[in-house]
């Protein structure tokens, strides 16, 4: 297609603006993570774009209680919150994906009523706050408060509708004939699911899992309400990084934010090959 020069200029300007809006905060965080206190502190005397004296002091602080540059010290290091986030998000994703995939497959292949999909998505219309207080009480009763497994369980429940809906769309788009072909050859129903359907659904499974993982990984509200001390997650821990003397510890927060960005990015790169195919699965008519 041939476009006019002014249009091209406008197009690139728009792309540039959009990228600036998304990328500048991320770059700001990366830069801040390596700045010494003077360059990020609330006084803002030496506020700079790039660290003048790059330092690992912020990382030293969050992983080692204290650092020479800061007068405050931490009660807890970031290690336990990182572990908590990883365990709860990974197991929460596993719960949501296994239950969601099974439900989606059953409904896509054998379901008659269409009420379950709608009922499941309606769960998401509730404001989370409205249900979290009863959940807190239930979790207290079950002794699940302030545990990573309690958090994993509620993550699995909360993200189940997403896993279910994504997988249902993918299953609906997969030609049934492929399964019937295996059935005609004498394969059992269960074996068709494990040996034919699931392997062929690798790409959609991977992209749905990544989506669900990111939802769980970035949760703040649920973790804030259900964890108090032992198993706080990264976002909750990050919010606590402040002191009456120094105010918000932006450098430490940035360092932690940078670390928190690592798992989704690694997962994204690992499944990149599948991701595009997964997201366009419905478009590729077999």
């Amino acid at each position: 297609m041939k476009r006019s020069v002014p249009f091209e200029i406008f197009r690139y300007a728009a792309i540039f603006a959009a990228m600036a809006v998304t990328l500048v905060p991320i770059l700001w965080m990366v830069s801040m993570a390596f700045k010494p206190i003077g360059e990020w502190s609330a006084t803002g005397a030496d506020l700079t774009w790039w660290p003048k004296q790059p330092t690992l002091a912020n990382f030293e602080f969050v992983f080692g209680h204290s650092t020479n540059d800061l007068i405050v010290a931490l009660d807890h290091t970031a290690l336990k919150p990182i572990l908590s986030s990883l365990l709860s998000a990974v197991f929460g994703t596993a719960i949501a994906m296994s239950a969601g995939t099974a439900a989606a497959y059953g409904l896509s292949r054998f379901g008659s009523g269409q009420n379950l999909p709608l009922a499941l998505i309606q769960l998401r219309l509730f404001p989370p706050m409205a249900v979290m207080i009863p959940v807190m009480i239930m979790w207290a009763f079950l002794n699940l408060n302030d545990t990573w497994w309690g958090l994993a369980l509620i993550y699995g429940i909360v993200t189940l509708p997403f896993a279910f809906w994504l997988m249902k769309t993918f299953f609906d788009d997969m030609p049934r004939e492929i399964e019937e072909a295996a059935l005609v050859e004498g394969c059992s129903r269960l074996r068709v699911f494990t040996r034919i359907t699931l392997p062929m659904m690798r790409a959609p499974l991977a992209s749905a899992a990544l989506f669900v993982f990111i939802l769980n990984w970035s949760d703040y509200l649920i973790a804030l309400l259900l964890t108090t001390r032992e198993w706080v997650t990264i976002p909750v821990y990050m919010a606590s990084l402040s002191s009456s003397m120094t105010g918000q510890l932006y450098g430490a927060k940035a360092a932690l934010g940078l670390i928190a960005a690592v798992p989704p990015v690694i997962m994204g790169i690992a499944i990149q090959r599948h991701l595009v195919r997964g997201l366009t699965f419905g478009a590729l008519k077999q």
Binding site: E177, I178, A181, A182, L183, V184, G186, P199, M200, R202
Partner: peptide
């Protein structure tokens, strides 16, 4: 009699090949 026991071969319009 389930389809796996009927001893029939079936070829589908969209070939239904196991692409993996």
């Amino acid at each position: 009699v389930p389809m796996g026991r009927r001893g029939v071969g079936f070829v589908f319009q969209n070939y239904a090949i196991f692409t993996h």
